[in-house]
């Protein structure tokens, strides 16, 4: 039994400590994902609260057949889609492939080592800059990046969540990483 499953069972038996552990385990990841998608702190907080409210409401019916984090991020994904549609209907949807490069393999994504810029900026500066670059990515790439970086979901799980193929997801991640890297190197050159 996973830590998540154990905490869910304990929470359903009345333990708020178990809920705290569950919440703390995913707080940053879920919020990071949502904020990456909506790009506004207050809007992200509203969606974040909605997500957890739905989690709380539906936890008694949780089947324990799948991983909790997949379930959690699926709820977050749907909430984000609803929010984006409500906020700006004509805006690019999550299904917009952007500058996807189809057919890239995972080893191609991780082969390139971190650029020198990572060692030249402080961690906080680098993170702020990455967030700015990510915010400018197309929604589909942004989502893949956010889910992959923090949620712990595999590319296969992200593909299932987005309803696309594995290669599409890998291509989106590749584009996102390439753009981030290029933007950071551009900063250093300047």
């Amino acid at each position: 039994m996973s830590d998540d499953d154990r905490d869910i069972r304990e929470y359903l038996h009345g333990s708020m400590s178990a809920f705290h552990r569950l919440y703390a385990r995913y707080e940053r990841a879920v919020f990071f994902y949502i904020k990456s998608m909506v790009r506004q702190h207050e809007a992200a907080e509203d969606i974040f609260q909605d997500v957890w409210q739905q989690v709380i409401n539906k936890l008694p019916g949780f089947s324990f057949k799948g991983a909790f984090h997949n379930w959690l991020f699926t709820i977050a994904h749907h909430k984000v889609i609803d929010a984006l549609r409500a906020a700006a209907p004509p805006a690019a949807s999550l299904d917009d492939p952007g500058d996807d490069a189809e057919g890239l393999a995972l080893h191609e994504l991780i082969a390139d080592p971190a650029p020198d810029v990572v060692r030249q900026l402080s961690a906080k500066e680098l993170w702020q800059r990455v967030l700015e670059i990510v915010a400018a990515l197309p929604p589909a790439q942004r989502e893949v990046f956010a889910l992959r970086i923090e949620s712990g979901l595999s590319f296969k799980e992200i593909a299932a969540l987005q309803g696309t193929g594995l290669n599409t997801v890998l291509g989106r991640m590749h584009c996102a990483v390439t753009r981030i890297r290029a933007a950071l190197q551009h900063d250093v050159i300047e």
Partner: peptide, 22 residues
């Protein structure tokens, strides 16, 4: 170590979630 600087939701959001959970 980069992710330690991530934003977190405000305290009142967390309090509302905990109240709902309770």
């Amino acid at each position: 170590e980069l992710t330690t600087h991530q934003d977190r939701p405000a305290e009142h959001v967390r309090a509302a979630i905990y109240a709902a959970a309770r």
